[in-house]
Simulated assay, not measured.
Amino acid sequence: MAKPNYQFEKRQREQQKKLKKVEKAQRKVQATQLPEDADTQAAQDPSLAQNGEPSGPSLM
């Protein structure tokens, strides 16, 4: 019967942990960038309302 390779198992767990940490950091960065992009777009073009449509008089 083969011996269990504990070092391999430990390395696999550590790699999974590191991957999960990196993915979480990427999600956090994306979440912080999305609201900033919306704010900068609205600041650059004040004629756009909160929903992204022009806020001028309607033509109806």
Rank of each mutant, 00 (worst) to 15 (best):
Leu59Trp: 14
Gln16Thr: 10
Glu36Tyr: 14
Pro46Cys: 00
Ala43Glu: 09
Ala31Met: 10
Met1Ser: 04
Leu34Gln: 14
Gln30Ala: 13
Lys10Met: 12
Glu53Ser: 12
Pro35Arg: 12
Ser55Tyr: 02
Gln44Ser: 15
Val29Lys: 14
Ala25Lys: 13
Ser58Ala: 09
Ser47Glu: 12
Gln41Glu: 14
Asp39Cys: 01
Gln7Lys: 14
Val22Lys: 12
Leu48Gly: 00
Thr40Arg: 10
Pro54Leu: 10
Gln7Ser: 08
Lys21Ile: 03
Gln15Leu: 08
Ala49Leu: 04
Ala49Glu: 08
Pro57Arg: 03
Pro57Lys: 03
Gln41Leu: 15
Val29Tyr: 09
Asn51Ser: 06
Ser55Thr: 07
Ala25Leu: 13
Glu53Asn: 06
Lys28His: 08
Ala31Gln: 14
Gln15Cys: 02
Gly52Pro: 00
Ala49Phe: 02
Gln15Gly: 05
Glu14Phe: 01
Gln12Thr: 02
Arg13Glu: 01
Arg13Leu: 01
Met1Lys: 05
Lys24Phe: 04
Pro54Gly: 07
Arg13Lys: 12
Arg13Cys: 00
Ser55Glu: 10
Asp37Arg: 15
Met1Asp: 06
Gln7Phe: 07
Leu19Ile: 01
Pro35Glu: 13
Thr32Glu: 15
Glu14Ala: 01
Ala31Thr: 10
Lys17Gly: 00
Asp39Val: 12
Ala49Trp: 05
Ala25His: 09
Gln50Glu: 11
Glu23Pro: 00
Tyr6Gln: 13
Asp45Leu: 03
Gln15Met: 11
Glu53Gly: 02
Gln15Lys: 08
Ala25Tyr: 06
Leu34Met: 14
Ser58Thr: 09
Asn51Cys: 03
Gln12His: 09
Gln7Trp: 11
Gln12Ala: 08
Arg11Glu: 11
Gln16Val: 02
Lys17His: 03
Arg27Leu: 08
Pro35Val: 11
Gln41Lys: 13
Arg11Pro: 00
Lys24Gln: 07
Ala49Arg: 03
Met60Trp: 15
Pro54Val: 06
Glu53His: 08
Gln12Arg: 13
Gln33Phe: 09
Lys24Pro: 00
Met1Leu: 07
Pro54Tyr: 06
Lys18Glu: 06
Gln41Val: 14
Val22Arg: 09
Leu59Thr: 14
Leu48Arg: 04
Gln7Glu: 15
Leu48Tyr: 03
Asn51Asp: 12
Val22Ile: 13
Gly52Arg: 02
Met60Pro: 14
Ala38Trp: 12
Ala31Tyr: 12
Gln26His: 06
Phe8Ile: 14
Thr32Asn: 15
Lys28Asp: 11
Lys17Cys: 04
Gln30Cys: 07
Glu14Lys: 05
Ser55Asp: 13
Phe8Gly: 14
Gly56Asn: 02
Val29Gln: 10
Gln50Cys: 02
Met1Cys: 07
Arg11Gln: 09
Arg27Pro: 01
Glu23Trp: 01
Val29Phe: 11
Glu53Thr: 08
